[in-house]
Simulated scan of single mutants.
Amino acid sequence: MDLTLSKAHQDIQHKAREFVDQVLVNYELECEVNDGLSRESLETINQAVMGWELNALNHSKENGGQGYSIFEQMLVDEQLGRVTGAIWDTVFRPSYPMKNATPAQKEEYLIPTCQGRRRDCYAITEADAGSDPTQCLTRADRIDGGYRINGEKWFVTVGDVADYILVHAHVDGDPANPAVFFVDKNLPGVELKRTPLYTHHFCYKHPEYIFNNVEVGADKLLGKEGQGYELTKDWFVEARLGIAARCIGGATRALEDANEFAANRIQFGQPIRNFQAIEFMLADMAVEIMAAKSMLYRVCAEIDAGQDRKLNHAKVAAVKLYCSEMVGRVCDKAVQILGGRGYMRENAVERLWRDTRVDRIWEGTSEIQRVIIGGQIKKRGLEIYTGW
């Protein structure tokens, strides 16, 4: 089998790396110092994303996107993971489930979002519902001509700049009848509760929203009633692959910085990389990245080849678990190699160490990924993970 990247794939990889190095890294310290980016900076980046044709990689050209495959999106995400402050999120990508939108919904929401004129965010988590969406208390009660939504959502990433929210709710409060709705933020009853602060600095915020008798028409239902969990699961698959790819990118940058520092830091008359304690850390970091990258590339290729949707969910859980825990180990070693400098926020390894801690939590914790993997082993046997 041929495991080399095609010329087209190498071009995508190179383009994404150039975009990160020429555009995004210039905003890292602004994001760190100000706990976010100014509106002016975000608008400048938005225009650059459009100019470099990196907008809406996950949607078709017909709908204003770039029509990239899962593998191609992964190549871009890996490079985006090199930038700190989650500035990768400025390379906007409308939620994948929006491919199920009606023609009217595509005109109103999807196409302008692909073109950078609107921005979406996805609201699932609640105070008492995280990894298990069936515990959501947000409800959408049927009324004449539509629905009345009541509830509260936490960790609505990009919710500060998005102008509409994709809300996961249960129709008439029935967990067996989940649905996803387009909810414009300017509707009566959509209330910003608070915007918490987090360990990492992020170019966007993660506010909490209250939906107080928010009325939407039947035309705001994405897909069908009862389809909400499947739509959300599709979103999780895409989001988890993106996290895994960015973890590899972040780990690679941390290793590169640590390797360069170790080669130039002279102690006891020689570079510290000559000491076996440091050399072994660098070796372990490189091997971890190689293993994670092999897993990610394979699974993305399998998905593009038409692998069963249920297998996608099972295998992506393994990818997300391994890559998110790998980047934590690699970044921790990078901080250790840089010593006191590794603990200074002006250095990328410190920011990556802090930024990537959340990757073991959001879009399904490591523990939830293990639950999925364990369940799949019981259902399908070990072959799903140990076979080829």
Rank of each mutant, 00 (worst) to 15 (best):
G375M: 05
T125M: 14
K106S: 06
P188Q: 09
F181S: 00
L222Y: 00
A101S: 01
G217T: 06
D355S: 10
E72N: 03
M285C: 06
C121I: 06
Q115N: 09
R117I: 07
A244V: 05
I377E: 03
V335C: 02
I361D: 11
L221W: 00
V76S: 07
F155G: 11
D234H: 08
Q13R: 14
Y343K: 13
A291C: 13
I70P: 04
D11C: 10
R118I: 00
G339C: 02
V190Y: 02
T232L: 14
C300I: 07
V167M: 03
Q22K: 15
M295A: 12
G151D: 09
D257S: 15
R82F: 03
A239Y: 11
E191A: 13
V330G: 05
G85C: 12
E288L: 14
T84N: 14
F181N: 01
G328R: 10
I289Q: 09
Q369H: 11
I373N: 08
Q227P: 00
I12C: 04
L222I: 01
A244M: 05
D359N: 14
Y204C: 09
F92N: 10
E40N: 12
T199G: 15
G146H: 00
G130W: 13
Y343N: 14
D172C: 01
Y164E: 00
I303L: 04
I272C: 02
L57R: 08
L352A: 11
L37A: 05
W154A: 15
D128E: 15
R253E: 12
V171T: 02
H168K: 11
E43Y: 12
I165E: 02
N186S: 03
E288Q: 14
A245T: 05
E215V: 08
Y385V: 08
E288D: 12
G242T: 05
K15G: 07
R345V: 13
T4S: 15
I45A: 06
G65T: 03
Q270F: 02
G375S: 09
D359F: 15
D132N: 04
C203Y: 13
N26Y: 11
P196M: 10
E30Q: 12
H9G: 11
Q13D: 15
I303D: 06
G130D: 13
N259S: 13
R142Y: 03
